[in-house]
């Protein structure tokens, strides 16, 4: 369990990292891996499941860390989080709590306190682990992933980012620099929950639901899942079905069943596909009922 040989570049700036990425791409056998928090990459290296020719360490690039407010689409705001922002910083950040509560809630489920000290938001988003929280949050909240390369800057909608199991739209010479989460109305309903066998494990079933409410009706809905397919999943039909419905008319069981029908859970060592569907349906039904009831309280 020792890594295969690799070259190591400590990137001092974003252009330096991009130059190293471009350089690796120019080499016929070139194959670069970005080292951020290392919580996934280091075990993969040790297992020789990843054997990059060069590792580009972006931990020293100060411009990549931090949380800020920026302008978003349609005149609303957005919260921009630098790629190397540590997960524990995301968890504690007041801007995240105020503007992206789903992300704050999800972060409490990410790994363990100790791993969150190293693990980064950008690392998790760009890896695309289908059972992890961050890719699903990005997908569900219509986040924009900002990728830089020596060719320029691409802003990729999360909806277009996750292509398959651990496969993303990121090109080999691109570096995720930040992720932007567009604002939702401040009084939106936010549900984030996951089922694990042990605290800190990958989710057997993970659920995200956010509802904007206007005049007692659902004005916008977003429903996403993790651990429920080869990629993070989105239940667009269920979202559409919820839109415009009065809170009192929501049938949580029907919504949950529709939403689940849009997932494609796999069977693995930890749970059957049937299990994931069954638990996901019950979980969503219960949490949606409770959230709607809470909102309807006088």
């Amino acid at each position: 369990m020792k890594p295969a040989p690799f070259d190591y570049v400590r990137a001092e700036s974003i252009p330096h990292a991009l130059e190293a990425l471009a350089g690796a791409g120019a080499d016929a056998d070139g194959d670069a891996s970005i080292l951020a928090g290392g919580q996934t990459l280091m075990p993969l290296l040790a297992l020789r499941m990843a054997t990059p020719s060069v590792i580009i360490d972006i931990n020293r690039i100060e411009a990549l860390a931090g949380v800020s407010r920026v302008a978003g689409h349609n005149g609303s705001g957005a919260t921009r989080i630098g790629a190397t922002t540590r997960q524990n910083h995301v968890l504690a950040n007041e801007l995240v709590k105020a503007h992206v509560p789903a992300l704050a809630k999800a972060t409490a489920f990410v790994g363990h306190h100790q791993t969150r000290n190293r693990g980064t938001l950008g690392g998790s988003v760009s890896l695309g682990e289908p059972a992890a929280e961050y890719p699903a949050i990005a997908l569900t909240l219509d986040a924009v992933i900002e990728a830089h390369s020596s060719e320029g800057i691409r802003r990729i909608d999360a909806l277009d980012f996750y292509l398959g199991a651990y496969s993303t739209a990121l090109l080999p010479d691109e570096l995720v620099v930040a992720v932007e989460y567009p604002d939702w109305p401040a009084d939106s309903v936010t549900i984030v929950h996951e089922v694990t066998r042990r605290a800190g494990d990958f989710a057997l079933v993970g659920l995200i639901c956010q509802l904007a409410i206007a005049e007692g009706k659902v004005s916008r809905a977003a429903i996403g899942w993790f651990g429920m397919g080869a990629t993070p999943m989105r239940s667009l039909a269920a979202e559409k079905a919820l839109k415009g419905v009065s809170l009192g008319d929501i049938d949580p069981r029907a919504v949950a069943e529709l939403a689940i029908s849009e997932t494609e859970p796999l069977e693995d060592k930890h749970a059957t596909a049937h299990y994931r569907r069954s638990v996901g349906t019950k979980l969503f039904t219960r949490l949606l009922s409770a959230a709607v009831a809470e909102r309807q309280k006088p």
Binding site: P43, A199, D201
Partner: peptide
């Protein structure tokens, strides 16, 4: 073998 790391060979943690 299909449980080759502690991700898949699930031992109890202190919480359990």
């Amino acid at each position: 073998p299909t449980a080759v790391t502690f991700k898949d060979y699930v031992i109890p943690s202190a919480h359990d």
